[in-house]
Design a protein around this nucleic acid. Structure first.
Lengths: 264, 264
DNA sequence: CCGGCTGTGAAAATCCTGTGAACGCAGGGA
DNA sequence: TCCCTGCGTTCACAGGATTTTCACAGCCGG
């Protein structure tokens, strides 16, 4: 958002954050280069702030960032100005004063439209430990080797990895992966976590990714295997038995131990 | 354009034609089916004409034709109504009276946005494996031999090939080839993939191009046929039976095996 | 030591895709 | 005008792949 009208900015900011948006504010024109770096979905601008070069600036932005939703919100304007703006590449033009909710809705509409045909929505690949998670393939890899995840497995892994470090409750996980509320007593999440751990273990034996939090849910965080948090007292350091030397032709004797965490 | 305000319609019509547009006018809601057939770039509608089902209608249109620019132009409306409309899928909302030039500009802006994603130079031939796909002929060739693809088959193949390597979901494929949203349970994509595979197999038997990703959709990637990932243990190497020595005059004993991928 | 919670393996229930064929439509010819 | 042919859409089935559900055993915390 490029604007200096502090009242408007403040009110809108509040709304936007309530809606879960991430908002960057600026009081003056930003170089297009910076805008590119920000990876914005949409840009709301009051050309009054831009001075003489307003038209020029808008045109440049529109040309350089065709994927960006560009919305103008400014004071009085003539039809001719609005038409000129829209023809230059502005996607929507509003007149102050306007209701922040409507601004939000119009920004959404503009961003939605841009997302539509292009499906850049598919997030960028994530990487964690030896793992590379690629949404464009609906698959995770270790090096070149795919883990052969099924769709649900992939979505679960992707969700966890997106929220890396956070402990996610089962209910929340279920809600987001399955799309509807989890029935009481449903163990699907547990089962899929097991399958994931199996496949992760198979391709990346020296890392541990999914951690259990007793009574809560799971947390994704790649950690080199065999790390044992130093206990309060440096007692019996009978290290982790080197029981596995990567020799594992037998498919089910893999004795994996999952350290579980207590609360937080 | 769906409106009954004859003054507005007339004036706008004149402007639109002057701008080189082709305008269809209707005094009442048209069935979405007809709208699909018209292949519109944008739709301008006054919900007042639609009666009770206005919201419903708008929502249906927006859902079925995500590529269509949908603009409302109507009399007085509240912020809440506008927000509701925009959230339903309306792309822009104007209030009468408004200047026809601005209506034009806004329609252009909306249509431009949906062109963005689609506007690829329909000229560059693609080649993949033994295949050459020529948009200028709406046909694919192996050497000089055409595959005799029908229009839909060609478009499907072209889309897949354009996104080579990416896994495309059925819904997205349908959306982009058929131009509107896929109904639940529609198997058209599968059927066309089968036809494509048949024709590809016929002309280029030693390659496999379209790969199935269970639960997701398809991926285009030319691969020499007969590639069999080396198993973990180099056990029983009872090689791939040389059952076919390219001697296959009989049209239907062709046993093609399609390896399906789990997600990735 | 007891009452939840989780990890497991496997069976049972569902869902998904490949296929072959029937239908309905529209254009071309007779 | 009627018939034939090519094309796109829909159906129903069969064989698999994937998800759910179960019953148990091992852990966690108190």
């Amino acid at each position: 958002m490029i604007d200096t009208d502090s009242g408007f900015v403040t009110v809108f900011n509040k709304r936007a954050e309530a809606a879960g948006w991430q908002l960057n504010r600026s009081a003056g024109p930003l170089p297009p280069r910076d805008l590119v770096a920000m990876k914005l979905n949409a840009l709301l601008v009051d050309p009054a702030v831009l001075g003489d070069e307003a038209w020029d600036y808008l045109e440049r932005i529109a040309a350089m960032l065709p994927e960006l939703g560009l919305v103008v919100c400014t004071g009085r304007s003539t039809v001719a100005q609005r038409v000129r703006g829209l023809r230059l590449g502005v996607d929507d033009w509003m007149t102050k004063p306007c209701h922040p909710e409507e601004v939000l809705a119009r920004l959404e509409a503009v961003a939605r439209r841009h997302d539509n045909g292009r499906r850049e929505a598919e997030g960028a690949p994530l990487s964690a430990g030896e793992l590379e998670i690629r949404p464009d393939r609906f698959q995770a890899f270790v090096g070149e080797e795919p883990l052969d995840l099924t769709r649900r497995e992939f979505e679960l892994l992707y969700l966890l990895a997106e929220e890396r470090g956070q402990v996610l409750e089962r209910e929340r996980i279920y809600q987001r992966v399955w799309g509807y509320a989890m029935a009481h007593g449903d163990r699907s999440v547990d089962v899929f976590v097991r399958k994931l751990r199996q496949k992760l273990e198979k391709r990346s034996p020296s890392w541990s990714y999914i951690h259990t939090h007793f009574g809560i849910g799971y947390r994704f965080e790649p950690e080199p295997a065999g790390i044992v948090k130093e206990e309060l007292r440096p007692a019996a350091p009978d290290a982790v038995a080197p029981e596995s030397t990567a020799t594992e032709p037998h498919p089910n004797s893999s004795q994996v131990v999952h350290k579980t965490f207590t609360a937080g």
